[in-house]
Amino acid sequence: MPYINVRIADKKSQETASAVATLLTNLAHTELKKNREVAAVDVQFAEYWFVGGKNIDKKTFYIEIKVTAGTNTRDEKAKFIQQAYEGMKNILGGVTSTSYIVVKDVAPDDWGFGGKTQGYRYIKA
C-alpha cells in the first residue's frame, strides 16, 4: 500500500508522469513509512480544468493517497502534503494555489492487495 491517484492539468508527458510517480513513491516511503515495493501511482492528465467555474490555463494538480487508517500521524500527513506540493511545483514549473492533496484513511478491513485485507495482514503479523 498505498494507492496514489494523480490528475495534472498540463500537457501529457511521459517524463512528467515518471517524475511525479518517483516523487510520490519516495514521499510515501520516507514520510508515511509505506513500503515502496507495493506503492501504486496512477498519473492522468486532464484536458480541461475548472476553478471557480472558469477553465484555467495554469498548471494545477490533484493528488489523493489512500492509506490504512490509524497508520499515520497528523504530523506525518502534514509533512507529506507540504513536500508533495513543493515537489509538484518543482516538477511542473509552478502551479496554482488551487492544487489539492488529500490523504484518505481507509479502514483496514475495507481494502487490501493480493487478495488479503490490511486487517488480515495486521492480525497475521
Rank of each mutant, 00 (worst) to 15 (best):
A125P: 02
R121M: 09
V103W: 01
V103A: 04
W111Q: 05
V67F: 00
V51E: 13
E86C: 04
F113C: 08
G93V: 07
F45I: 15
D57F: 07
A46Y: 01
E31L: 14
Q44E: 10
A19Q: 15
A28W: 04
V102S: 08
N26M: 07
F113K: 10
V6Y: 04
R74I: 01
K89A: 12
K33T: 13
N26Q: 15
K116V: 15
K66C: 00
V102Q: 07
Y120G: 05
V67P: 00
S18F: 06
E31A: 06
D75I: 05
V41S: 01
A78W: 00
Y100L: 15
E76M: 08
G53D: 09
T71I: 05
K58R: 12
V6P: 00
D57M: 12
T98L: 10
L27S: 08
A9L: 13
F113P: 02
K12M: 10
K116C: 06
E31R: 15
K79M: 11
V67R: 01
Y85K: 08
Q82N: 06
K116A: 12
I56M: 15
G52R: 15
N5C: 10
M88I: 09
S97L: 11
K34W: 06
G114P: 02
T30A: 07
F50K: 13
G119M: 11
E37D: 14
T60Y: 00
Y120T: 10
N35K: 12
L27N: 09
K79G: 00
G115E: 11
K33F: 07
T60Q: 01
D10W: 03
G112I: 11
T98I: 13
K11W: 03
A9W: 03
V43K: 04
E37C: 00
A17R: 07
S97T: 11
N26T: 15
T25K: 11
T68L: 04
T71W: 09
Q82D: 08
L92T: 12
V103P: 00
E31S: 10
R7W: 04
I91A: 07
A19R: 15
V6R: 07
H29S: 14
F113H: 14
V38S: 07
G115D: 11
L23I: 08
A69K: 10
Y100N: 13
A46P: 00
G53H: 09
W111T: 03
P108L: 08
R74F: 01
Q82M: 09
V102G: 02
G93M: 10
F80H: 06
I63Y: 00
A69C: 02
D105I: 05
G93D: 05
K12W: 00
Q82F: 03
F50P: 01
